[in-house]
């Protein structure tokens, strides 16, 4: 590992992508993720890669489609309003089974909203967003180091499953500086992609990248294939983190930067003698339903904390399945909950 650097989340993500072998990046500027295109506009030329500022988020995601279909490791990034524009492309990419990484440094909504951090794109990211039956793998880092680690993982998962992977951060994570280390070696050997459109030299069947299937029987077959793939991802790729949950009576559930805030609140609660713990989903899809549900055996109740008006709490309720009360505390519009606010909610439940 290299020496520890102090980097913003956005810039660390860009460097991690380069280290993961990503050589094409297409994006459109939007706050609070513009450090990422700015960083890659300097970095990509150094490694012989392509940085291209697209005319829109719509164009950027379709450039990703083309480059991914041509076999490249490719990424785009944006923040909430721009991610809405990418939904069409994401549906096509998922349908055509193209690997790529899409970053959402989310900000307050709906509409133009604000430029301050938010988690109000949770449902869009995990339950669809675009049309059709498809899933994104959604990774939610909570520190700048985890941004690096999960970005590298995202490229590997995308290639392994031929599926788009979203890195779900927020404005705070993108702007925050923390120490990071990067793996020394830049990955060079990428997995073979015999399906890519690289020019037909008659040594394989002609490759066609498409999400179109006009025959209902065949489209249903394709959907069954996708669902089987998603089932495999659910079996093999669920990730989460637990903190002091062993004897916890109040289990706080939070992801991303909010989990950091909640962790401080849990520490403060413990100092007051309250048995609090933290459950932090790292994959938002697939969601760690079983691991969270198991905590219902011992916990008295659950407190979901989000930077939105209540989105992930629906998954927490599914996981707990009515066995214990599930409470919600949220701030929205770009407001960030404080450890003191979360502690006050924990104290109400203790």
């Amino acid at each position: 590992m290299s020496e520890k650097l102090l980097m913003k989340g956005n810039e660390a993500l860009g460097e991690a992508a380069v280290r993961a072998g990503c050589r094409l990046y297409f994006a459109y500027p939007i706050t609070p993720q513009s450090e990422l295109p700015e960083y890659l506009s300097r970095r990509m030329p150094e490694v012989g890669g392509v940085f291209l500022q697209a005319e829109s988020e719509v164009a950027a995601i379709n450039m990703v489609y083309g480059a991914s279909g041509a076999g490249a490791r490719v990424m785009t990034s944006s923040s909430s309003p721009g991610i809405s524009l990418k939904q069409e492309g994401l549906s096509y990419i998922a349908g055509a089974e193209l690997p790529c990484v899409v970053v959402n440094m989310a900000r307050g909504g709906p509409g133009l909203g604000s430029i301050q951090p938010s988690q109000s794109d949770y449902l869009q990211a995990t339950k669809g967003g675009g049309h059709g039956d498809y899933r994104l793998i959604v990774l939610a880092p909570a520190s700048v180091q985890e941004v690096v680690d999960l970005t590298i993982l995202a490229f590997d998962l995308a290639d392994k499953y031929r599926n788009p992977v979203m890195i779900m951060g927020d404005g705070l994570l993108g702007q925050m500086m923390e120490p990071v280390t990067f793996p020394d070696e830049v990955k060079k050997e990428l997995p073979p992609k015999p399906w890519a459109t690289t020019g037909w030299t008659k040594d394989r069947p002609k490759n066609i990248i498409t999400s179109l299937e006009l025959q209902p029987e065949r489209l249903e077959e394709h959907n069954r294939h996708l669902q089987a793939k998603y089932a495999q991802i659910v079996r093999e790729e669920i990730r989460w983190d637990e903190y002091l949950t062993g004897d916890a009576e109040v289990v706080v559930v939070a992801y991303g930067t909010v989990a950091r805030i909640a962790r401080s609140a849990v520490d403060a609660a413990r100092e007051k003698g309250i048995k609090a713990g933290l459950f932090r989903p790292i994959t938002l899809w697939p969601y760690p339903y079983d691991a969270l549900g198991r905590l219902a055996d011992a916990a008295k109740n659950f407190l979901t904390v989000e930077m939105n008006c209540g989105q992930m709490v629906e998954d927490v309720r599914l996981a707990v399945d009515g066995r214990r009360p599930v409470y919600f505390y949220g701030r929205s519009g770009g407001m960030v909950p404080t450890p003191e606010e979360v502690l006050a909610e924990i104290e109400k439940l203790a």
Partner: peptide
Amino acid sequence: EIGSPVVTR
């Protein structure tokens, strides 16, 4: 390990 990077006090 730093919990909350957001600080009220």
